[in-house]
Design a protein around this nucleic acid. Structure first.
Lengths: 356, 356
DNA sequence: TTCCACTGAGACAACGTTATCTTGTCTGAG
DNA sequence: CTCAGACAAGATAACGTTGTCTCAGTGGAA
């Protein structure tokens, strides 16, 4: 196998024996002590002779010194890492979260976000939590959906609990049955707003495309919508399986069975896209024949044709809030204030008054 | 919810003084030496008395021991981290790359990918490279676009060079003027395939929506398309500014000025979406009035209406290849073989024979 | 002049691992 | 019976940084 038996003295052959210049090297080269070199190269603020300071800086630059964050972290205890476990990077929903978190981490805090991709796999979620923990992240942001089987949920709850005990600040970006602060909009409010938008335009017979109601988020939205429609005396039909994978039958069935429906709420941007396609496919047009209110985030919704009216989940605010919370908590603040994050109605061209 | 307030020992006031159980603790508790504990808790393979082994394992579990990757890495030199600098997480293009890289890192190698989001900002790209370097990543995957101003390119080239010298395996996921192995499809081939698809269906007058031809990728695609169309005697019109931000005028202008155009190539999935919207807006339909071939990756293209025929860039293969290369190189292989990655024609419903 | 507070720089230990060296025990051959 | 050789476990020294302690020099006040 390894033919090169470290013949160090002479030829460091292949991968060039990774050996970066270290603080000791800089210090020696500059003729100062390691402490002094460290003090200079650290953020400064210390009283060091300007002459020495300059000399050290010069030497470091010349040697191509790059501080070793690992050693620094090991010694000083605190990490500047934040872990983000996202559900699925292909989904712009998580893309927006990742964008918000990484951007805010970079801009507002001296932190680096590690984005992990759980691929909708609860096992992988556990694994990433563990790995991030091993990397001693200061905080953890869980943004995966709640695809929780009971056993996974338990395991996750256990590891979360341990991490918290170990000092990691754990946060959630969607409502889940886990004991950690949540940063997300009120999904009941989201449901209300979506329903209200159709009601406001005078729709009396509507459909609700909710997807599989297996997680908390969708259940909350659904309940709020139903309640809102009921309160307004609007007839509503619930449409269950409508993931973009195979939405064909669902919308067709709905529309076939309820020809008088004039409006639809799509509770996910993925579902929205499926619906629009399907509505087009069966020869109807949005919003001429049927109005659509979507729930989601993605800027992609605005690029669709027509521009979809939707309830924006304000994911950016959620991500920022979670990060701020972590930063505050990690720096010793007793408890950061949790301000409310409100969903926003983004008016597009997909809702008009019904003509029947 | 969970009403259990951590009323543990006495009063561990604020952030509970992060103090995780360490190997030393485990060893002491289990009554063995640190070396032995370490040997057991490391992947094993060492000859350790089964009794002790079990005892150590038990103790570690009971104490909630979590190995400190930082210390491990610091001591053993090699990292299992790979840095990915992506252009923009909102863009599903980079989403697919991130997905491929993180998934492959997790599945095929014992590595963890750190995804960074350069937000199309060259300065940020530099910053992230530096930060990843400080974290002593084993490899770096640059997937940002080439938004390079000259000064930034130079700075980037310098830091890349230093990183390489320091032992970091640097790779590129799009053609850029940097000295590092590239893992991406041949964009000339992509252009050819896109053009060929329209030609194959009999189109004789086509438009090329290429966006701003400021980077290498688009230039290569454009040249190949032009050459292919020319060779087939197909009349082509180049359409420059067509980002989704404000594509309104461009397509309209094109279509107004060239009413006889029967086919379009959109050289980006973002552009594709803009085009489709615009074509619809001016009252035409795809593919009835105009056929569209897109270039891109996103599965989103398949969810559009109609399903877009497109040249898939095989980003997954690119990401995997880059990662494999890094892993091979990091583990001392002299030079990993670079296999060709081929684009794929995904046939949708957006191209038919022209009716005029 | 003496003493103390103060300043700036060096010495040194420690963070939690792992690699290497050393020690001790046991087997079996000479 | 002794000693080489194998084997398992303990001891120890790093890895590169930072926090703390020490120390030498300086200036001012008693």
């Amino acid at each position: 196998m390894v033919s090169v038996t470290k013949a160090e003295g002479d030829l460091p052959s292949l991968p060039a024996a990774r050996r970066d210049p270290t603080l000791v090297d800089v210090a020696r080269q500059a003729g100062v002590s390691v402490s002094t070199a460290g003090r200079v190269l650290r953020d400064g603020g210390w009283p060091v002779d300007p002459l020495l300071r300059e000399r050290v800086r010069e030497t470091a630059l010349q040697l191509g010194y790059v501080p070793n964050v690992l050693a620094r972290t090991l010694r000083s205890g605190g990490t500047a890492l934040v872990g983000l476990v996202a559900g699925n990077m292909l989904d712009p929903y998580y893309g927006e979260i990742a964008e918000a978190v990484t951007r805010h981490a970079e801009a507002a805090h001296p932190m680096l976000a590690m984005v992990c991709n759980m691929q909708r796999d609860p096992l992988l979620e556990l694994k990433y939590c563990r790995q991030l923990w091993e990397h001693r992240v200061a905080g953890l942001i869980l943004a995966g959906g709640g695809f929780d089987q009971v056993t996974h949920r338990t395991q996750l709850a256990v590891i979360i609990e341990q991490m918290k005990k170990s000092g990691v600040v754990v946060t959630l970006l969607s409502p889940r049955d886990l004991d950690a602060p949540q940063f997300c909009v009120d999904n009941r409010l989201v449901g209300e707003m979506a329903a209200a938008e159709l009601i406001r335009h005078g729709h009396r017979r509507v459909g609700i495309a909710i997807g599989r109601v297996q997680n908390l988020v969708r259940r909350q939205r659904l309940e709020a919508m139903v309640a809102t429609f009921d309160a307004a005396g609007v007839r509503h039909t619930i449409l269950e399986p409508t993931e973009p994978s195979a939405p064909e039958t669902a919308v067709s069935d709905l529309l076939a069975a309820n020809r008088d429906i004039t409006g639809l709420v799509a509770s996910t941007h993925m579902i929205s896209m499926g619906i629009i396609n399907e509505v087009l496919r069966v020869g109807l047009a949005v919003p001429r024949d049927i109005s659509v209110v979507a729930i989601g985030n993605a800027k992609l919704l605005e690029w669709s044709t027509p521009r979809l009216t939707h309830i924006d989940l304000n994911l950016e605010a959620c991500g920022r809030a979670a990060l701020d919370f972590i930063a505050a908590r990690a720096s010793g603040a007793p408890q950061a204030a949790q301000t409310a994050i409100l969903p926003r109605l983004i008016t597009g061209d997909s809702v008009i008054a019904p003509d029947r």
